[in-house]
Design a binder for these strands. Sequence first.
RNA 1: GGGGCUGUAGCUUAAUGGUAAAGCGCAAGCCUGUCUAGCUUGUGAUGUUGGUUCGAAUCCAGCCAGCCCUA
Length: 391
Amino acid sequence: MFRIIKQDPYSRARLGLLETNHGVVETPAYTIVGTHAEVRAMSVGDLMKAKTQLLIVNTYHMWRKLGDDGVRNFSGLHKAMGWEKTIMTDSGGFQVFSMGAAREHRVSKTGINRNNNSAPSADKSLVTITEEGAFIRDCGEVYLDAEKSIAIQERLGADIIYAFDECTSPYHDYEYTKASLVRTHRWAERSLKAKTSDQLLYGIVQGGSFEDLRKESAHVIGSLPFDGFGIGGAFSDSFGSTMTETIRELDWVMPLLPENKPRHLLGIGRIRDLFYGVQAGIDTFDCVVPTREARHALLWTNQGKVDIRKGIYAGDQTVLDIECGCPVCKAERVTKDALHHLFKSKDPEAGHLASIHNVYFFNDLMRQIREAITKERFPAFKETYLRAYPL
RNA sequence: GGGGCUGUAGCUUAAUGGUAAAGCGCAAGCCUGUCUAGCUUGUGAUGUUGGUUCGAAUCCAGCCAGCCCUA
């Protein structure tokens, strides 16, 4: 289970050990996203070398990929992936959002989607949500609900699984958000009831950006016999910009959740987010940013964020990040020039090397945060780091 | 020396005599429980001088440049 081994005297941050069926996760920790049971552009060996402790796989996508029969006969994620450490699966609730309200409202996880030039037909919601569950038009209509999600997640066999929830959009009004919240709470109880395995089941707190709903959700979900809690929702803002919304929501929610159980911030994880999340008492994070941005040539380094495609890096024979201990920077000493040209020529090795670097960078940042908490200098570390790296 | 071919953006190519397009490059931005190893925006050209025409990248002539053939 979960053990808090040190409480930060200056904030709600804590150092913990999350014991799962596949190893112990030192928290605060980063979760790398491997949607279809593989982290794009990375092998299991790469993930190990990049100090990865745990992965998250997506239930909806695995279900769609394998089919009902494939799920029934599935050998389990650990075996299928060759990954012996901790794995969590998302419930599929977020896909209901991203294919539904997110599409219709043209929003992403953290705000208005500026990349909204898609054809009008692409903006129609593909989802119909009822009290029972969600109907999704995805190459024919499919149906997902709490019992189904839990059944699939049990077959997938991750160490940590999530209750089926509905994620709301920042453009949903109070009325809708409240109705959705009540439904998510009923789905949470159904998820608990449906589970027959010894997997750890996390409940998900929703409530949008409404204080009373967030608090109500934290109270209701927090009092159910879950093994841990996810903080979900699409935020109308991220820590990265004005850092008002999400941090405010965490301040409402976190004090109401049981202290001794792990908390996971779903889908959030840029650098600022991590510091403010840890400070608020978050134990684990997951986010596609390290891997997706790596494939999009955006590298997070100790010297700041680098878009390695830019022309100034052509001919730059210095190592990507001289202060980085990752295999790409330290062992292979890959230069900015080399990475630049790999990206320019669309060589698959570009995304591969970039992913190793970014994943290592985020995992190592979490290690430094744990070390700072151990030494009781988390606030100072946070201030120093964010001053040098205001992203 | 003679003959031929070709000259459009930094590059590679479009454009029945009728608003000079595109890809790459370059530049700026975006990505947060992955339908995205991707997306958006911007930059920038008819070798040159004349002629024909209401109108020329396009037709004609001279010049310039490159390539080919030939003495």
